[in-house]
Write a protein that binds this DNA or RNA. Structure first.
Length: 128
DNA sequence: CTTCTCACA
DNA sequence: TGTGAGTA
């Protein structure tokens, strides 16, 4: 499920192909890049190379534009989308630290009680 | 031939 | 956003 996403991110399409796939002019495609909506890579000859994800985003932008949304509006939509992703990322990190909290708490207890891990083991064997 | 940047009779 | 100029 991750190998697939990697392929979709591979920039292998020249602008000419993108034009046919999206029905957008080169001018528009470059303009949307200028607006930060997409960030195509560049090959050795400074030629823009697009990925399938870039195509999807361009088509998405095209739809928003068709719905009457302007550049500013589209930028806001992606800005909000980025913030929500940031929150999800923060939550994952928080849940991961929660797991670590137990380890930290346990180590703290061991230190305060003065019990080594080996002693804890022997205590258990003695039913304590 | 395709794409790039820059500019606007 | 279109388009032509001059390149790479």
């Amino acid at each position: 499920m991750k190998e697939k996403e990697l392929r979709r991110s591979l920039a292998v399409l020249p602008i000419g192909t993108v034009m046919k796939l999206t029905d957008l002019t080169a001018r528009q495609i470059r303009y949307y890049e200028e607006q930060g909506l997409i960030i195509p890579e560049r090959n050795e000859g400074n030629r823009r190379m697009y990925s399938l994800n870039n195509i999807d985003k361009l088509l998405e932008v095209k739809d928003y534009l068709a719905e009457g949304i302007n550049m500013a509006g589209i930028k806001q939509i992606y800005a909000e989308r980025a913030q929500e992703e940031a929150k999800r990322q923060a939550k994952r990190e928080k849940s991961l630290t929660d797991a670590d909290v137990r380890r930290i708490l346990r180590d703290e207890f061991v230190a305060v009680s003065g019990l080594s891990k080996q002693n804890q083991f022997s205590f258990r064997n003695n039913g304590l």
